[in-house]
Amino acid sequence: MAFSHYPEPLARLIQEFTRLPGVGPKTAQRLAFFVLRMEERDVMALASALADAKRKIGRCSVCFNLADAEPCHICRDARRDRGVICVVEEANDLVAMEKTRTYNGLYHVLEGALSPLEGVGPEALRLAGLLKRVKEGGVREVILATNPTVEGEATAMYIARLLRPLNVKTTRIARGVPVGGDLEYADEVTLARALEGRREM
């Protein structure tokens, strides 16, 4: 036991903190000491928030978004356009999309991306659910908003191929130079893509 020179409950807390991403032993110790100095009711609030989040948050059975209700608040929302589905890799990509406040359709969260090199194949993604939604009808357009990485592009190409026989309009989000970026520092590939995706002004 690495933290055995501490009293057992403290050692255990430190050990548990090291499970978090990006938290090494040093940070874990700092966090644990901070918890000891906190008010008891704040510690209880933190503990119950952790337990609640884990217990109450699940995946929406329609779009696989993280949700505390079934279906999720987006799938339930009658004001949203049910004819458009935006496909994203992870739930946090959906949040990023929502923050733009320009999209009013539904989503589909894949919970990952195809990665030939890591052995992540189509069966690991939520593709059956997407196909089912499109086959049920009423969907005019599927927007592929996977990341512009090798994995994201492969996923988009794969889904486009799956959807082809279903006769639904399938689009890919444009890729280009980031806002606040500098043309001089943009790589050749990004610049070429930006040029391809140019629009008339």
Binding site: L117, D187, E188, T190
Partner: peptide, 11 residues
């Protein structure tokens, strides 16, 4: 997003 290495470091 602003990294100048991005495009060069693709598989």
């Amino acid at each position: 997003p602003r990294s100048s290495l991005r495009g060069a470091c693709q598989p």
